[in-house]
């Protein structure tokens, strides 16, 4: 279903932080959306309010999860939903992270803020197939300890799922904080990866993506092996409304995940 939303029921609401929730969604009838790949997104419709693009933050057999931060009218309406509420879903749309292409390589996952959400299904897939990849590094930047997404899950992955290199840094510390304090790029010094055989996956604010990708290029990662997820205004998600253009890229169709070799020249032009 890509034209008309399919009704889904909220089966659980996980409160992640003060302004962010994860909706666990299941179809209301036999019809279901086609399977999502990590990195792809859905258009999520809040009844009577509107529709926004949201990357899938976990893919289970019977449920989809979308982690949503309340920043506008639609996201606020979605964040206010309770179990039993209905939403409309269209999708899947866009490109995925394409983890398969990194078989045999080290993986470097760098997330900033809500950018950890689209990366979570990628990390889960990588953890489920540890033998296929080299080192898995997960570097996370957050505004403050209280704004960190999936904190318990990060600890669980580290303690029980073999995630050996997980580092979290915050812009502002707080009492009891166990991780780093500083910009997310400083964590690159703590990661273990061989630049000539590493694929990196970046998601977060554009300034953070730019800073991280440039640092990685400086460290010898080829731009095409740095995959970034970008964001622009989206209305249709089907490549017809023109809103998500970034130069020649239609982000709903050619993105949201694109290679840094393609993104860098586009992001270098102001107001493109």
């Amino acid at each position: 279903m890509t034209d008309v939303p399919l009704p889904y029921r909220v089966i659980r609401v996980n409160r992640e932080t003060a302004d962010t929730v994860t909706l666990v969604l299941a179809p209301t009838g036999p019809a279901t959306l086609a399977p999502f790949a990590p990195g792809q997104f859905a258009m999520v419709y809040a009844f009577g309010v509107g529709e926004i693009p949201v990357s899938v933050s976990r893919i289970d057999r019977h449920a989809l999860r979308h982690t949503i931060r309340s920043v506008g009218a639609v996201s606020a309406a979605l964040c206010a939903l309770r179990p039993g509420s209905r939403v409309g879903l269209r999708g899947p749309f866009g490109t995925g992270w394409e983890l398969d292409r990194a078989a045999g390589q080290d993986l470097l996952v760098v997330a900033g803020g809500i950018g950890l959400a689209p990366l979570r299904p990628l990390v889960l897939d990588a953890l489920a197939a540890r033998h296929r990849y080299g080192q898995l590094n997960l570097l996370v930047g957050a505004r403050s300890p209280g704004d960190l997404l999936y904190a318990q899950q990060l600890r669980f992955w580290t303690a029980h799922r073999g995630l050996r290199h997980c580092a979290v840094t915050v812009d502002r510390s707080a009492d009891g904080w166990w991780g780093h304090v500083g910009l997310v790029t400083t964590l690159l010094n703590h990661a273990e990866f061989a630049p000539d055989s590493t694929t990196a996956y970046l998601c977060g604010p554009e300034v953070m993506i730019r800073a991280t990708a440039r640092d990685l290029v400086h460290r010898g990662l080829p731009a095409q092996r740095i995959r970034v997820s970008l964001e622009r205004n989206m209305r249709c998600a089907t490549g017809h409304c023109g809103h998500c253009q970034l130069g020649g890229v239609l982000l709903c169709r050619d993105g949201p995940v694109i290679g840094w070799d393609r993104a860098d020249p586009l992001l270098s032009v102001r107001e493109l």
């Binding site: 034209d3 008309v4 939303p5 399919l6 009704p7 209301t28 419709y45 009844f47 009577g48 039993g84 509420s85 209905r86 939403v87 409309g88």
Partner: peptide, 17 residues
């Protein structure tokens, strides 16, 4: 117009082209 959506008294949602 693309579609319309109706909310039932039981909270159900139906969306038709």
């Amino acid at each position: 117009q693309l579609w319309s959506a109706d909310r039932g008294s039981d909270g159900s949602l139906s969306i038709v082209e």
